[in-house]
Amino acid sequence: MSKVFDAEEVKKHASEKSAWVVVDGQVYDVTDFLDDHPGGKKILLRNCGKDATDAFWSYHSEKVMEKQGKPLKIGQVKEGSKL
């Protein structure tokens, strides 16, 4: 079973020390990926602590999510949470 996070918990993780993003309701810990992100860490940090679904799908395909996202997934956002 996947861990469930409320919006307030996700919002706390918006820095280089702890960076989480939400895509399609799923929570990803991208902290260790910041320096490896091909687009640079600034764009990731700009979207941390909130729902980055639109930004993610504007630049990435399902293939990228499968390869890069799957190992970074730590849970999902509680249903009804507003980010």
Rank of each mutant, 00 (worst) to 15 (best):
D29P: 06
D36A: 15
K12I: 06
L83Q: 05
V21T: 14
F56H: 04
Q68L: 15
S58A: 15
T31M: 09
E62N: 11
K70D: 04
A7S: 10
M65N: 03
E79H: 05
P71A: 02
T31R: 00
F33Y: 15
K82Q: 09
K63T: 15
Y28A: 02
V4F: 03
V21L: 14
E62L: 14
D32N: 13
M1A: 06
T53V: 13
V22Y: 02
M65W: 09
V21W: 01
D6K: 01
K63P: 07
G80I: 08
N47S: 05
F5L: 04
K3Y: 09
Q26N: 09
G80F: 10
Y59H: 12
F33I: 11
E8A: 07
L72Y: 09
Y28V: 08
E66R: 14
A52K: 05
L44K: 00
K12V: 06
V27R: 03
E8P: 01
Y59C: 12
P38V: 08
F5D: 02
C48R: 00
L83P: 07
E9T: 08
K70E: 04
Q76H: 07
F5W: 02
G25R: 03
Q76P: 03
E62R: 14
G39Y: 11
D51R: 00
C48Q: 06
L72D: 03
T31K: 02
M65T: 07
V23M: 02
L72R: 08
G40E: 15
K12R: 08
V77M: 04
S15K: 02
K67P: 10
F5Y: 11
L44I: 14
E9P: 04
K67V: 15
G39S: 11
D35Q: 12
G75E: 07
W20I: 04
K42Q: 15
G40T: 15
V77E: 05
E62I: 13
H13M: 08
T53K: 05
A14I: 10
I74D: 06
P38M: 02
C48S: 11
Q26F: 07
K82N: 09
